[in-house]
Amino acid sequence: MNAHPSYDITWHYDSQRKKVVVTNIHLTIASGLAPKTGGGFWDAYVIRRSIDPEPAKDPRKFPYGRQGDVTGVDGNSLKNDYFPGSVGFYAHNNKTQAEVKAVNDYHGSYDAVQNNDGSWSLITIYSRYGVSSHQNNPTFGEPAWAEWGKTSPIATITLPKLATSQVHYHYNQAENRYYESRIIFSNIF
């Protein structure tokens, strides 16, 4: 595909709850025609909030030995099935170069998902792909289907960390004496 999403995401850190909170998402999907390199499969991706579940596997099977996509599937049917509740969608037919896209700016509030490395995922992009190496070879007798898997880019952030401590001294002229006061910053985020 030759369609690249860009996004402008507004978020803040809630220090009381120790969570990253997303409040606005604005998407654009710039596209251009990709080369014709397939038998008519609809390559697609859907962009969701990081808290939303992965799209469900399509239960429809590919016919044995057939190039292309499942009968009755096109960019509009995929959009109708997978775009509702999402913030972005793009589909491209790899034979005809037809494309379908949709965006839905998000204005609300949800907690981002914290990853094992301490970063936070704000949105997740899932790519549609055909499975089974046998989809075009009927001798194996195994039909194929389309699934959704995580792909890049996934919008993530890492919070900055401040120095662990600072020491400040002040001089009290009336007592002719120095006083030490410590300001502790310990991973405020």
Rank of each mutant, 00 (worst) to 15 (best):
M1R: 01
M1N: 02
A3W: 03
A3C: 11
H4V: 07
P5R: 10
D8E: 14
I9D: 01
D14S: 09
S15A: 12
S15F: 07
S15T: 10
S15L: 05
R17E: 08
K19L: 15
V20C: 02
V21G: 03
V21Y: 04
T23I: 07
T23Q: 05
T28W: 01
I29E: 03
A34G: 03
P35C: 01
P35I: 01
K36T: 15
G38M: 14
G40V: 11
G40N: 11
F41Y: 06
D43K: 07
A44R: 00
A44S: 08
Y45G: 00
Y45T: 00
D52H: 04
E54P: 04
A56C: 07
P59K: 06
F62E: 14
F62K: 15
Y64I: 05
G65F: 04
G65K: 00
Q67V: 11
Q67N: 10
D69K: 01
V70P: 00
V70Y: 02
T71R: 12
G72C: 00
D74P: 04
D74T: 07
G75P: 03
G75W: 07
N76F: 09
N76E: 10
S77C: 09
D81P: 00
Y82N: 08
P84V: 06
G85E: 01
V87C: 13
V87G: 06
F89T: 06
Y90E: 02
H92R: 06
H92T: 08
N94K: 00
N94L: 02
K95C: 05
Q97Y: 11
A98S: 09
E99P: 00
V100M: 11
A102R: 01
V103G: 06
N104Q: 14
N104T: 13
D105I: 04
D105K: 03
Y106M: 06
H107F: 11
H107P: 01
S109Y: 01
S109N: 06
Y110C: 10
D111V: 15
A112E: 06
V113L: 12
Q114L: 07
D117R: 10
G118H: 01
S119Y: 03
W120N: 05
L122Y: 03
L122G: 04
I123R: 05
T124Q: 08
Y126F: 13
S127K: 12
S127M: 11
S127N: 09
R128S: 13
Y129K: 13
S132Y: 01
H134S: 15
H134F: 15
H134L: 11
Q135N: 15
N136G: 14
N136F: 13
A144V: 01
A146L: 05
E147V: 14
W148S: 06
W148K: 04
W148N: 03
G149Y: 09
S152M: 09
I154P: 00
T156V: 08
T156N: 02
T158P: 00
L159I: 04
P160F: 05
K161H: 13
A163T: 11
T164K: 12
Q166Y: 10
H168L: 12
H168Q: 10
Y169K: 12
Y169H: 13
Y171V: 12
Y171Q: 14
N172Q: 11
E175S: 14
N176V: 10
Y179C: 08
Y179I: 07
Y179W: 09
Y179D: 11
I184W: 03
F185P: 00
F189V: 02
F189K: 02
F189D: 00
